[in-house]
């Protein structure tokens, strides 16, 4: 399982890369590998205000549909439209292919997210139940 050390993670298996007041968000390797072949991505709406944990999109694979949650509160300032025509990019490289850029409302919200080591342990527990 690829879990880059320089990112933050959520229990819903999203990753966050913070750059100043903005952050790129995407889905983790755990998420893409469990979903299997991804066939459709419904992207968030641009310029909308979202709260942390709010549903902002949908990812459909050959096996299931999963809700995409916004890990942090803020405004959606960019979306990766390439994913609309090539959803499989999320399987190919889920960290290079971000889904959206969020302008943060409150940087202190980042403290609730997991660092790579904690997320790695979280994934292990999710897999084994121990």
């Amino acid at each position: 399982m690829n879990i880059p050390a320089d990112l933050l993670y959520t229990k819903d298996h999203e990753w966050i890369r913070v750059e100043g007041d903005q952050c790129h968000i995407g889905i983790s390797d755990f998420a893409q590998s469990h979903l299997g072949d991804i066939v459709f991505v419904e992207l968030p709406e641009l310029d909308i205000e979202v709260g942390a944990g709010q549903a902002i999109g949908v990812i459909e694979s050959v096996k299931a549909v999963a809700t995409l949650f916004c890990p942090v509160g803020g405004t959606i300032v960019e979306i990766n439209e390439e994913l609309e025509s090539s959803p499989e990019l999320l399987n190919e490289d889920c960290y290079a292919n971000w889904i959206a850029v969020v302008e943060l409302n409150d940087k202190s919200e980042l403290e609730t997210l997991m660092e790579a080591s904690a997320y790695s342990e979280f994934c292990r527990q999710a897999e084994t139940g121990v």
Binding site: K11, D12, V62, K63, A64, V65, A66, T67, F69
Partner: peptide, 19 residues
Amino acid sequence: NDITIQGRKFSGNAQYKHR
């Protein structure tokens, strides 16, 4: 994601994950 009898489908299945 199907269940079949003699190769013909009678059941389609799907999943939805929420948290």
